[in-house]
Amino acid sequence: MSIPYHLHESLGYQMTVAARIQEKRLEDRLKALGLTRITWCILLAAGTEGLAHPSEIAGFVGIDRTAISRALRQMEDDGLIRRKAGEADRRTTLVEVTEAGAVRVEQAIPIAQENSRLVEAKLTEEEVAGFRRILAKLREGEELSLKTF
């Protein structure tokens, strides 16, 4: 006798669907600026978070070395970032947001804020605070580097 599994009742499935809904809405709106969710996160990491090393940026975004290299190469081709050798150690690579990249960040911030507002508007302040606590608890002890973010 097999034990039934009800996919749509699974908490993991429901979290995935909810996450994909907000991700898709954000991706669709960022696309108008020539950005993806990943390039947006990289611009935030390098521009507003002050991260300069590709490995730091990859960790912040939750992607692996191959993905960060590919994304940085494309973003450099698009004029959003520049890569340069480190001053103290010429073997290191540093990432800087260009003026065009900074403009894109400023244009995308209202999009990201609206996306967050739409999600949070469905919940009370107490529910938002509780949801943040629950999500933090679910992440505890888990691998933080998301290879397929």
Rank of each mutant, 00 (worst) to 15 (best):
M1F: 10
M1G: 15
M1R: 13
S2R: 13
L7K: 11
H8P: 00
S10V: 04
L11G: 08
G12Q: 05
Y13C: 06
Y13D: 06
T16I: 05
V17D: 07
R20D: 07
R20N: 11
R20H: 10
I21K: 14
Q22G: 02
Q22M: 09
E23I: 04
E23R: 10
E23Q: 12
K24P: 00
K24R: 13
K24Q: 09
K24T: 12
K24W: 03
R25Y: 04
L26F: 03
L26A: 07
L26G: 01
E27R: 10
D28P: 00
R29H: 11
R29L: 02
K31M: 02
G34S: 04
G34W: 02
L35K: 02
R37Q: 03
W40I: 00
L43Y: 06
L43C: 05
L44K: 08
G47H: 00
T48S: 04
E49Y: 02
G50L: 02
G50M: 01
G50V: 01
G50H: 02
G50W: 00
L51Q: 05
A52Q: 14
E56L: 13
E56H: 15
E56N: 15
I57N: 13
A58I: 07
A58V: 08
G59C: 12
F60D: 14
G62I: 07
I63G: 09
I63Y: 11
R65C: 05
R65T: 14
I68C: 12
R70L: 09
R70C: 06
A71E: 12
L72S: 10
L72P: 10
R73S: 14
R73A: 14
Q74S: 08
Q74D: 10
Q74W: 01
E76H: 07
D77H: 13
D78C: 00
L80V: 03
L80P: 01
R83H: 05
K84D: 08
D89V: 08
D89Y: 08
D89S: 05
D89P: 01
R90M: 07
R91W: 07
R91Q: 12
T92H: 08
T92V: 05
T92A: 06
T98L: 02
T98V: 01
T98D: 00
T98A: 03
T98S: 05
E99N: 11
A100T: 07
A100N: 10
G101S: 03
V103R: 13
E106Y: 02
Q107C: 05
A108D: 06
A108G: 15
I109G: 03
P110K: 04
I111W: 04
A112V: 03
A112Q: 09
Q113P: 00
N115M: 04
S116E: 08
E120V: 10
A121C: 04
K122Y: 02
K122W: 04
L123E: 08
L123N: 08
L123K: 11
T124V: 05
T124G: 11
V128L: 09
A129D: 15
G130I: 02
F131E: 09
R132W: 08
R133Y: 02
A136W: 06
A136S: 14
L138M: 12
E140Y: 04
G141R: 05
G141M: 03
L144I: 12
S145L: 15
K147V: 11
K147Y: 12
T148P: 00
